[in-house]
């Protein structure tokens, strides 16, 4: 099939970007979306033009590198699917596809479809961990974890840090990402001692990075390729409230 692409091109963080139109020819349904872009890029290179820059690595939906807004939807809008897992059989001959980077103040564009997501790292650095130095641990089976807690913690821990939640949110809020980590660690016995300082520190950092607030729209969870539930945000807000009541700051 043949497709028309409108792709956001931007030289670097300082310059202005614009949409450029390309034709993607002879695309096969078995290709992934990124393989389709590979084809376009190979052509561009041979013509001596710079290929479209986009991030990717594992190409199997786990590293969180890839991510672009496809026809208005982060990752293309298929349930539980990252851009790298999206296949061309979902498109048909003659389709026009618009491709843009994540748009958020806290995620400045570095080039074309690549954005800087280091704000996420700094949120984790602020408190998204359990302080357990190497060597301190006792035998792993000393502390039991109820299966349902372990499962719920795993559900939240599945976040791949892609940033689609931020891109989908009209406020560019990072609540889903932050709350997923708070939920993961807060559900485990090992995470209890730092539970309330953690939430305070991470939320502070989130605000400092310039992410927007949450107005309960729910676009984040709908766009999340790992289907992180909205309930993690409620949990985070509860923890934050308790932390305030306890006077943690």
């Amino acid at each position: 099939m043949n497709l028309t692409l409108h792709v956001w091109r931007q030289k670097n963080a300082q310059s202005e970007g614009r949409f450029v139109t390309y034709q993607a020819k002879n695309i096969i349904p078995d290709m992934s979306f990124l393989e389709m872009l590979d084809v376009v890029n190979q052509e561009l290179i041979l013509k001596g033009e710079e290929p479209i820059a986009f991030e990717h690595d594992c190409r199997e939906g786990i590293c969180g590198s890839c991510g672009m807004v496809i026809n208005g939807y982060p990752h293309g809008g298929h349930r539980g699917t990252t851009t790298c897992q999206l296949h061309m059989r979902h498109f048909k001959d003659g389709d026009v596809i618009t491709i843009e980077p994540w748009r958020a103040r806290a995620f400045p564009v570095l080039k074309d479809l690549i954005v800087d997501r280091s704000a996420f790292d700094r949120i984790i650095q602020a408190g998204g961990f359990i302080s357990a130095n190497t060597g301190v641990a006792q035998d792993a089976n000393t502390v039991l974890v109820p299966k349902q807690n372990a499962e719920a913690a795993m559900d939240a821990a599945a976040c791949i840090g892609c940033g689609a939640c931020v891109a989908a949110c009209p406020n560019a809020s990072a609540m889903l990402f932050t709350a997923a980590k708070i939920t993961h660690l807060g559900l485990l016995p090992q995470g209890q001692p730092e539970r309330y300082t953690r939430v305070v520190r991470m939320v502070e950092q989130m605000d400092r990075e310039g992410f927007g607030g949450c107005t309960n729209i729910g676009e984040c969870s709908a766009a999340c390729p790992k289907e992180i539930p909205l309930s993690v945000i409620a949990r985070m807000n509860r923890d934050l409230l308790v932390a305030k009541l306890k006077g943690v700051n």
């Binding site: 359990i130 357990a132 792993a140 372990a150 993961h184 090992q190």
Partner: peptide, 11 residues
């Protein structure tokens, strides 16, 4: 060590 860090192993 991993359990102490909060790695959610299957239970």
């Amino acid at each position: 060590q991993c359990v102490a860090q909060g790695v959610p192993f299957a239970r």
